[in-house]
Each structure stands twice: as C-alpha cells, then as structure tokens.
Amino acid sequence: MITPAHRLQSVQEYYFSRKLKEVQALVAQGHPVINMGIGSPDLPPHPSVQQALVEALALPKAHEYQSYQGIPELRAGMRRFYETQFNLAPDVPVDFLPLMGSKEGILHIAMAFLNPGDQVMLPNPGYPTYASVTELVEAEAVYYDLQPEQDWVPDFAALEALDLSKVKMIFIGYPHMPTGAPGSLQLLQQWVDFARKHQLLLVNDNPYSFVLHHNPISIFNCQGA
C-alpha cells in the first residue's frame, strides 16, 4: 500500500465531527439533547432568493465552469456591502474573493504564507480549524490565552513579552467563537498596531459581524489595517 504523506500523521478527525457523533449517541440513548454546536440557519431563504436561484439555473452559462475570482458583479456587490454595512470608504484598497467557507480560506492563506517550522499565534479558546490547519502545513502553534476576567481579550503586555522571532501569522476573530465576546474597534486597532510593530500577518476571521453587535465593525475600519 502506498504510504501517505507524513503530515497526515498529525491530522485528526475534526472537532465538531467528533462532537456530533457524541450527540447522536446520546440521542440514540434517549437523552433530550439540545444541539447548540453549529449555528445552522433555522429559517429557509426568502422566497425571492429561492426564485432567483431557480432563474439562475436557466441562464445560458449556468452549466459552465465558474470564474476563479467570482464574477465582477458579485465582487462589486461585496464591496458595496462593506461600504454600506461597515462604513468603509470607497477608496480603501480592499479586494474580495468568494470562498466555499471559512475553512477553505484558512487553509489557503496558511498554505500561501507558512513554511514548516513557522509559528502561528492562535487564540485559546478558539476555532479548532486554526490548529488543524497549522498542523497540516507543518507550522507550530503558539497559543495566546483569553480569560473570562479580562472579557476574553488578550493581555498585550504578555504578548509583547513572548519570543516572536519565529512567529509569522496571527489568527483573531471578534465577535469571538466560542465565547461570544463582541470585541471592539479599539481592540482591533490594538491588534493592527501589534501586528505592524512586529511585522506579522494578521488574519481576522469575522463570520459573526452581525451577531451580538448593534454597530457591526470591520478590521478595515482601523488605521493601518
């Protein structure tokens, strides 16, 4: 049998896959489990959205390979969304690339920037995919702790005391998963300043902009981001 690549020795079953199996086993035993693990939408798309999808299937080019970067209309719509929802100035140099999901983006950006032995700063607690991808690309995880008594924000003095000589990338994400800490523009600015000071790539995973936030914020609202 052909031997798999040695990097696969560090790959384990995805965290939520294991948890869902545990939930299914408990349900099978008759336990009244309320699954709060993955926030799948509990309402169907609006009828107008469903109709638009049906009509799109009939378009002459619907059966062809899709654009590598997304059609211009989609990318322009993404920019308009950021301008209107995050008050992002039209001249801010931001580009957009549609993804199948956050896991794809996390993997691709890690593959694009990390070499074996590079270090990556990851939140603890944090989204399990950060650690999985770090192992897959043979980089090294350096965890920074988030404590409830500090409202789940990092101790920047402690971060400054770390040996950052091998660190290349930082993963952050607010509103935070799994704690739900909303974060703030001031916190994001601290991260931007820290990353610029130490010449680190700052990756802000931001799928929950409109959850727990009355005024959604983007890292692109920060000076120097």
Rank of each mutant, 00 (worst) to 15 (best):
Q66Y: 04
E64Y: 07
M169V: 01
K197N: 09
P182K: 13
E138K: 15
D145L: 14
H198I: 05
K166Y: 07
P175R: 08
N215M: 07
D95V: 05
T84F: 04
P93C: 06
E160G: 04
G37A: 09
V49T: 15
V11I: 14
G180F: 06
Y68M: 09
L43G: 02
E140T: 15
L164Y: 02
Q190C: 06
M78Q: 10
S17H: 08
E104Q: 15
S40F: 12
D118K: 06
A112L: 01
A76I: 02
N215I: 07
L88Y: 07
S209K: 07
D155E: 12
F220V: 09
I170Y: 00
E149V: 08
A52W: 11
N87P: 04
F171L: 01
V54Y: 13
I170R: 00
L122P: 02
V211M: 10
G117I: 03
V49W: 13
V33C: 11
P216D: 04
D163M: 05
Q223T: 10
A157E: 10
L74E: 08
S17T: 11
I172K: 01
L185N: 13
F194H: 05
R18P: 01
P60V: 05
E73I: 11
Q199Y: 03
L159S: 00
P4A: 12
Q24H: 11
Y68W: 09
S165Q: 13
Q9G: 10
E83W: 07
G126L: 15
C222Y: 05
A139D: 00
S218W: 05
L188N: 04
V120P: 00
S218I: 06
A112E: 00
D42V: 13
Y174C: 01
G70E: 03
S132I: 10
G101Q: 00
N221I: 02
N215G: 03
L122I: 15
A161T: 11
M100P: 01
L99P: 04
F96I: 03
H63P: 01
F171C: 00
E83Q: 15
Q9I: 04
L53K: 11
F156K: 03
L26A: 15
L8Q: 11
Y14T: 07
Q29L: 09
G180H: 07
L97G: 01
F113K: 00
K103S: 12
E73Y: 06
V137Q: 11
A157W: 01
N124A: 15
V54G: 09
P93S: 06
G117W: 03
P47R: 14
P125L: 14
Q12R: 15
G101D: 01
L146Y: 07
P178C: 10
F113L: 08
H31F: 15
L162C: 06
D163P: 04
K61S: 14
L99N: 07
E83K: 08
Q223I: 04
Q51I: 03
Y82H: 11
S218K: 07
V142P: 04
L201G: 02
F16M: 15
A56G: 03
P128W: 08
I217S: 09
